[in-house]
Amino acid sequence: MTTETHLDDLAIKTEALSRIYKIRGAKKGEMRERVALEDINLSIPRGELFGLLGPNGAGKTTLIKILTTLLSPTRGRAWVAGFDVVRESDKVRPRINMVSGGETSGYGLLTVRENLWMFAQFYGIPSRQAHQRIQTLLEMIGLADRANTKSSDLSTGLRQKMNIVRGFMTDPEVLFLDEPTLGLDVQAAREVRAFIRRWMDENPSRTILLTTHYMQEAEELCDRVAIIHEGRILACDTPDHLKQEVQHEAIFQLLVETEQPLNSLALENLPGVLRLHHQWMNGGLQLEISLAEEGVLPLVIGELERQQAHLRSLQKRQPSLEDVFVQLVGLRMEEVERERGNGYHPNTQE
């Protein structure tokens, strides 16, 4: 097969990878199918920090579970570090590690150091070397002073940091991070991102696949980003290239004061207005508006005046991955998540 030839340079490769979950339907005995991943084709070279960006339920965790040998694919194949994740899973496992955010895992009765040391032993790392690595990583992530604390006495955020060290300490060829900053406060999330970046910079052959639903995180950290939605990859490129797709648009942020509700439809229907998003913010109404070109702006301002909305501030904004997502999906990521929260499952089939 042609794929085997350059598999060596690839940390991760998938071919038409699909996963369907069987779930119980509303009626008794009825089984329904939910497509979590559909025809995923990815090639991630060694040395890359690759991001999977997508809203809740996009299929990010499902993909990570398949690549880490925890879940079987329904169709298609996948290779990690050159080995098939189904047929050669015992060759994959020594070469990888995985961390999921937003959960408190670990043996609470053991100290931070004991937890980590034990997992190092699971990977066959000699004890002394393990202790050294653990100490270095704990210092890097800012947990060294709690090394001898029972992990049950740690806050959720610190436990997550411990879990992150557990993933990095085995120095895997390919590391999977499933929403590593989920649930962390701003400061801790920043520290974790810096930690991830530093670890990647230390050794150019290291590879990370990271999932996130924070646009900014993907933009800031990742060499390449795949935008995933409803089990499909909609776009995959460097953040800069992705943004170039929407670069020709002019995006403005306006803060307006208005007595009566704004007729946003009238604004959206103006020629040259591509998208409009509005939300209330400390007293005013914040509008975010994408225009086909800057010249459309006077039209918008004219319409606002006609509706007796007073402009308080106006700012041109650089396009972000959020804009890319909106262009691809037609909704903002938070809107997708809100709809999911209301029981909207577009990818459920009878």
Binding site: T68, T69, L70, D90, R93, P94, I96, N97, M98, S100, E103, T104, S105, G106, Y107, G108, F119, F122, Y123, G124, R166
Partner: peptide, 13 residues
């Protein structure tokens, strides 16, 4: 309880 089974299963054990 410990929520570690997946990490045990990912490890070369």
């Amino acid at each position: 309880h410990y929520r570690t089974l997946k990490y045990i299963y990912v490890a070369p054990l």
